[in-house]
């Protein structure tokens, strides 16, 4: 069933169009930077963007930082919101459930296909960022400088970038879980996606508000930027670990809610 769902997801042109569009912005930014040589003022703009002019191997990180706040979650919410509600809207959900596999398994299959989509998307963004960075910017053969001012060898940059890619992928699971849950509530994929984005916007806004600091540690977007901590020396694991645990809690709770709702839902279409 998982294989069926995966095949369905990656055979759709829409999936690939989404991934391609997602890569458009970092590529455009890279071209603009390379042509004009105007990096954002230090401390402004997305993380690592001012560092890429001197070291192109950091561009995968800058690309992730560019798509992380909005583009990536929109793509994830689009796919995850569509997963169940899309079938309901197209009238195919009842045929899916007629198979003897059961609803819980269908939900798990949908979730796994979303996870694979998230991972593929993040990896594609990083790989395209790496290629663009190598093509358009200077590359330091000896590695680079960590945020703490120590030397990083090329292999260190490589494995820390891999960790960052993994971390960003996990960070998207909360959005995916929200969209999947909403997707079991409604028959409209659009409503599910917008619901997840609404949560996301609210979370980003509350995070900037001092008055909300009492529950800021529990906001789904709280630890998204923690992948920067992987480039400090020594690595600051605190927020990374918390970010992973928080996404885990959101996935467990929302998946539980999606399961509780979906397995007992009347399927009308």
């Amino acid at each position: 069933m998982i294989a069926v769902e995966l095949r369905k997801l990656f055979r759709r042109p829409r999936t690939w169009v989404t991934i391609a569009l997602l890569n458009g912005l970092p590529v455009l930014v890279a071209v603009l930077l390379a042509v004009t040589d105007l990096a954002p003022r230090p401390g402004e703009g997305p993380a690592f963007l001012s560092a890429v002019l001197t070291n192109g191997t950091l561009y995968p990180l800058a690309a992730l930082a560019i798509v992380l706040p909005l583009f990536l979650p929109i793509a994830v919410a689009l796919i995850a919101g569509d997963s169940v509600a899309g079938e309901a809207q197209a009238g195919t959900l009842r045929y899916l459930l007629a198979r003897p596999a059961g609803r819980t398994r269908l939900l798990v299959a949908k979730l796994v296909s979303i996870l694979v989509f998230v991972l593929v998307t993040v990896v594609v963004v990083a790989v395209v960022g790496y290629l663009v960075g190598r093509l358009l910017f200077d590359v330091q053969p000896l590695g680079g400088t960590s945020v703490s001012g120590t030397d990083l060898s090329s292999t260190e940059i490589a494995w820390r970038t891999l960790l960052a890619v993994g971390y960003v992928a996990v960070s998207m699971l909360g959005v995916a879980a929200f969209a999947l849950f909403f997707s079991t509530l409604t028959d409209s994929p659009l409503a599910a996606m917008l619901g997840a984005l609404g949560i996301l916007v609210a979370s980003s806004l509350l995070f900037t508000l001092d008055a909300a600091s009492s529950f800021a540690p529990y906001l789904p977007t709280r630890y998204w930027l923690a992948f920067v901590d992987l480039f400090r020396e020594p690595i600051l694991w605190r927020d990374v670990v918390r970010g992973l645990a928080l996404q885990g809690v959101y996935v467990v709770v929302l998946l539980g809610a999606a399961w509780a709702n979906f397995t007992t839902k009347d399927i009308s279409s």
Binding site: A47, V147, R232
Partner: peptide, 10 residues
């Protein structure tokens, strides 16, 4: 180290 979201001062 003073840690900020996108940098630090040590």
């Amino acid at each position: 180290d003073v840690v900020t979201p996108t940098g630090e001062t040590d």
